[in-house]
Protein backbone atom coordinates (compact mmCIF):
# COMPACT_ATOMS: atom_id res chain seq x y z
CA UNK A 1 0.00 0.00 0.00
CA UNK A 2 1.65 3.22 -1.15
CA UNK A 3 1.45 6.53 0.69
CA UNK A 4 -0.70 9.21 -0.86
CA UNK A 5 -0.87 12.96 -0.38
CA UNK A 6 -1.39 14.61 3.00
CA UNK A 7 -4.71 16.31 2.33
CA UNK A 8 -4.36 18.75 5.23
CA UNK A 9 -1.16 20.13 3.69
CA UNK A 10 -2.34 19.86 0.08
CA UNK A 11 -5.47 22.00 0.38
CA UNK A 12 -5.83 23.82 3.67
CA UNK A 13 -8.88 25.63 2.26
CA UNK A 14 -10.68 22.40 1.43
CA UNK A 15 -10.10 20.94 4.88
CA UNK A 16 -11.03 24.22 6.54
CA UNK A 17 -14.38 24.06 4.74
CA UNK A 18 -14.95 20.46 5.79
CA UNK A 19 -13.92 21.23 9.37
CA UNK A 20 -16.43 24.09 9.42
CA UNK A 21 -19.12 21.63 8.38
CA UNK A 22 -18.06 19.29 11.19
CA UNK A 23 -18.23 22.12 13.75
CA UNK A 24 -21.69 23.08 12.47
CA UNK A 25 -22.89 19.49 12.85
CA UNK A 26 -21.63 19.31 16.43
CA UNK A 27 -23.67 22.43 17.28
CA UNK A 28 -26.98 21.20 15.86
CA UNK A 29 -28.02 19.67 19.18
CA UNK A 30 -27.93 15.92 18.52
CA UNK A 31 -26.64 13.76 21.40
CA UNK A 32 -22.83 13.37 21.20
CA UNK A 33 -23.08 9.67 22.10
CA UNK A 34 -25.47 9.10 19.18
CA UNK A 35 -23.18 10.98 16.80
CA UNK A 36 -20.23 8.75 17.75
CA UNK A 37 -22.25 5.60 16.98
CA UNK A 38 -23.25 7.04 13.60
CA UNK A 39 -19.66 7.99 12.79
CA UNK A 40 -18.40 4.56 13.76
CA UNK A 41 -20.99 2.68 11.71
CA UNK A 42 -20.44 4.78 8.56
CA UNK A 43 -16.67 4.38 8.92
CA UNK A 44 -17.02 0.60 9.25
CA UNK A 45 -19.08 0.40 6.05
CA UNK A 46 -16.71 2.67 4.15
CA UNK A 47 -13.66 0.77 5.36
CA UNK A 48 -11.99 3.76 7.00
CA UNK A 49 -9.41 2.35 9.42
CA UNK A 50 -8.26 5.78 10.57
CA UNK A 51 -11.85 6.90 11.31
CA UNK A 52 -12.77 3.70 13.18
CA UNK A 53 -9.66 4.08 15.36
CA UNK A 54 -10.42 7.76 16.02
CA UNK A 55 -14.12 7.40 16.78
CA UNK A 56 -13.85 4.32 18.98
CA UNK A 57 -11.16 6.15 20.98
CA UNK A 58 -13.28 9.33 21.17
CA UNK A 59 -16.36 7.37 22.20
CA UNK A 60 -14.48 5.60 24.99
CA UNK A 61 -13.14 8.94 26.25
CA UNK A 62 -16.70 10.26 26.35
CA UNK A 63 -17.79 7.30 28.48
CA UNK A 64 -19.21 4.90 25.89
CA UNK A 65 -18.96 1.21 26.88
CA UNK A 66 -16.68 -1.23 25.12
CA UNK A 67 -19.48 -3.76 24.80
CA UNK A 68 -21.71 -1.32 22.91
CA UNK A 69 -18.85 -0.26 20.63
CA UNK A 70 -18.13 -3.90 19.79
CA UNK A 71 -21.84 -4.31 19.08
CA UNK A 72 -22.13 -1.45 16.59
CA UNK A 73 -21.23 -3.53 13.53
CA UNK A 74 -23.97 -6.04 14.49
CA UNK A 75 -26.39 -3.61 16.15
CA UNK A 76 -29.51 -5.25 14.70
CA UNK A 77 -28.68 -8.46 16.59
CA UNK A 78 -27.90 -6.87 19.98
CA UNK A 79 -30.14 -5.58 22.80
CA UNK A 80 -27.68 -2.73 23.54
CA UNK A 81 -29.22 0.11 21.56
CA UNK A 82 -32.34 2.22 22.15
CA UNK A 83 -35.06 2.55 19.51
CA UNK A 84 -33.75 6.03 18.70
CA UNK A 85 -30.21 4.71 18.26
CA UNK A 86 -31.46 1.82 16.12
CA UNK A 87 -33.39 4.21 13.87
CA UNK A 88 -30.29 6.39 13.50
CA UNK A 89 -28.07 3.39 12.73
CA UNK A 90 -30.52 2.09 10.12
CA UNK A 91 -30.63 5.55 8.47
CA UNK A 92 -26.83 5.70 8.59
CA UNK A 93 -26.59 2.40 6.74
CA UNK A 94 -29.21 3.47 4.18
CA UNK A 95 -27.51 6.77 3.38
CA UNK A 96 -23.96 5.47 3.49
CA UNK A 97 -24.84 2.83 0.90
CA UNK A 98 -27.16 5.18 -0.92
CA UNK A 99 -26.50 3.85 -4.42
CA UNK A 100 -27.65 0.40 -3.30
CA UNK A 101 -30.46 1.24 -0.87
CA UNK A 102 -32.09 4.40 -2.25
CA UNK A 103 -33.07 5.37 1.34
CA UNK A 104 -36.15 3.12 1.56
CA UNK A 105 -39.51 4.07 3.08
CA UNK A 106 -39.10 1.49 5.88
CA UNK A 107 -35.96 3.19 7.21
CA UNK A 108 -37.47 6.63 6.74
CA UNK A 109 -40.54 5.55 8.74
CA UNK A 110 -38.31 4.28 11.58
CA UNK A 111 -36.47 7.59 11.55
CA UNK A 112 -39.64 9.70 11.52
CA UNK A 113 -40.97 7.75 14.53
CA UNK A 114 -37.92 8.68 16.64
CA UNK A 115 -36.75 12.10 15.40
CA UNK A 116 -38.53 15.37 14.70
CA UNK A 117 -38.19 17.10 11.32
CA UNK A 118 -35.19 19.21 12.32
CA UNK A 119 -33.41 16.27 13.92
CA UNK A 120 -33.94 14.17 10.78
CA UNK A 121 -32.20 16.78 8.63
CA UNK A 122 -29.46 17.32 11.21
CA UNK A 123 -28.79 13.59 11.44
CA UNK A 124 -28.70 13.38 7.64
CA UNK A 125 -26.10 16.14 7.58
CA UNK A 126 -24.09 14.33 10.27
CA UNK A 127 -24.14 11.14 8.19
CA UNK A 128 -23.14 13.11 5.08
CA UNK A 129 -20.28 14.74 6.97
CA UNK A 130 -18.72 11.52 8.27
CA UNK A 131 -19.12 10.12 4.76
CA UNK A 132 -17.11 13.12 3.54
CA UNK A 133 -14.29 12.48 6.02
CA UNK A 134 -14.34 8.79 5.12
CA UNK A 135 -13.82 9.73 1.46
CA UNK A 136 -10.79 11.82 2.30
CA UNK A 137 -9.23 9.31 4.68
CA UNK A 138 -9.83 6.25 2.48
CA UNK A 139 -9.15 8.14 -0.75
CA UNK A 140 -5.77 9.30 0.54
CA UNK A 141 -5.04 6.25 2.73
CA UNK A 142 -4.76 8.11 6.01
CA UNK A 143 -3.53 5.61 8.59
CA UNK A 144 -4.06 5.44 12.36
CA UNK A 145 -0.97 5.95 14.50
CA UNK A 146 0.94 2.75 15.26
CA UNK A 147 0.25 1.06 18.63
Amino acid sequence: MTARINFYAASADAIKALSALEVAVSKLGLEPSLLELVKLRASQINGCAYCVDLHTTDARKAGESERRLHGVSVWRETPFFSDRERAALAWTESLTQLSLTHAPDADYALLAAQFNDKEMVDLTLAISTINSWNRFAVGFRKMPAAL
Partner: peptide
Protein backbone atom coordinates in the same frame (compact mmCIF):
# COMPACT_ATOMS: atom_id res chain seq x y z
CA UNK B 1 -36.86 21.80 8.74
CA UNK B 2 -33.27 22.79 9.57
CA UNK B 3 -32.01 26.06 8.09
CA UNK B 4 -28.91 25.73 10.33
CA UNK B 5 -27.94 22.39 8.79
CA UNK B 6 -28.58 23.63 5.27
CA UNK B 7 -26.61 26.84 5.68
CA UNK B 8 -23.62 24.70 6.77
Amino acid sequence: ASPEAMSA
